[in-house]
């Protein structure tokens, strides 16, 4: 039986839900799904330049687990780039640091530091906000 996957901590939810290729491409097959923990591994290791030990500590997972997540993530990104596939960022076994929301009016993303429920956007005051599941 496969081992259950560890829950990864994610600091801030991804900015967008995915990417689409620019220009003509013939094969509009199923998009590649990049899990949120895979996105976070690429962000911490490649964008922030952290060591695998440092990134694993932030995500609260073991280093070998991070290595496996990162390898899966790179393979998916390579597939997207080479085969001109759409990329969807969703799913995975993650827990965000605190409650996060997205404002439908100003498109900002914000947290609730006191772990309480937020009813309006702290930037524009709109009540049209969505809770981000993680």
């Amino acid at each position: 039986m496969a081992r259950p996957r560890q829950i990864s901590r994610v600091q801030i939810p991804p900015r967008v839900k995915g990417f689409i290729p620019v220009g003509y491409y013939k094969d509009q097959s199923e998009p590649v799904q990049l899990n949120i923990e895979e996105y976070e591994a690429i962000r911490l290791l490649d964008y922030e330049g952290l060591s695998q030990e440092g990134a694993a500590k932030i995500m609260q997972i073991s280093r070998p687990t991070l290595t496996r997540i990162y390898e899966r993530a790179r393979k998916k990104v390579a597939t997207v780039l080479t085969e001109a596939q759409q990329l969807i960022i969703e799913g995975g076994n993650v827990l965000f640091n605190g409650n996060w929301y997205e404002c439908e009016k100003c498109n900002s993303t914000f947290n609730s530091p006191a772990e309480s429920t937020v009813k309006t956007c702290p930037l524009c005051g709109s009540g049209n906000i969505q809770h981000k599941e993680g």
Partner: peptide, 9 residues
Amino acid sequence: KMQLIIINE
């Protein structure tokens, strides 16, 4: 325990 607001532009 600060509030973070991330803008998209």
